[in-house]
Amino acid sequence: MASAKEEILARIRNAKVPPVAPTVRGYDREGTGGVELFAERVADYRAIVHVVTDVPEALERLKGKRIVAPHDVPAEWLVDGVTWLHEPLTIEELDQSDGVLTGCAVAIADTGTIVLDGSEGQGRRALTLLPDYHLCVVRVDQIAASVPEALQRLEPTRPLTFISGPSATSDIELNRVEGVHGPRTLEVLIVG
C-alpha cells in the first residue's frame, strides 16, 4: 500500500492544476510612515508610548520593581534601584516578576508593531510573555515604514514574535478588550 505522503502527492499531481502567471505585486511595498506614525499607531492599541532621548533616565519608572532583562541588554539600561532578574529563570520566576525590559529587532510604523527575533537584548520568547508588563525600547533606525519593508529586514528562521499592543481579545460580542494571557501592559520607549 502506498504511504499517505505518496498517495497525497499522487492525487495532487493527478489534479493537473495548470501553471499560473507570476504574481503581480502592484501594492505599495515602501510606505512613508516614520516615528510619528509608529507612535500614533502603537498608542491606538492602548499601549503606552514615549519618545525619549535618554534611556537610563526614562527607566527611572522601573525603580523598586523586580524586572527581568536579557543578559545582553546595554549595560546602561540596568539602572540602580531596580532588582534585575537574569537568566536562568524558571517559568515560575518569570511569572512572578513585575515586568520585563527588552529591545527589539524591527518595528513597523504602518501597523504600530514591534518585532522580536531573540537576538541581542531580547532573550528567549518566554521572557516577554509571562511577565504582566513589557517595556520595549525601539531605536528610530529600527522602525520600518511598512509590513513589506519589515519582513525584508527579518530572518524568517529565527523565532519571531510580532507584538501590536497589549494582549487583547475580540471574542465577546466582537468588541476589542485589552488584557488576556500575554502582558496586559505594553510600554514602548522610542529612542530618538
Binding site: 501597523t111 531573540g118 520568547r125 524568517p156 510580532f162
Partner: peptide
Amino acid sequence: EVFLQLLPRSSTAERMNPYTSVWTGVTPGD
C-alpha cells in the same frame, strides 16, 4: 507581506493582530 496585511484587517478589523508567532523547526534554548 501580502497576507500579514490582508488577514488582520479582514478578520478582527485591526491593522495588525496583537500577536503573530513565527517559528522554524526547533530553536535550541527557546
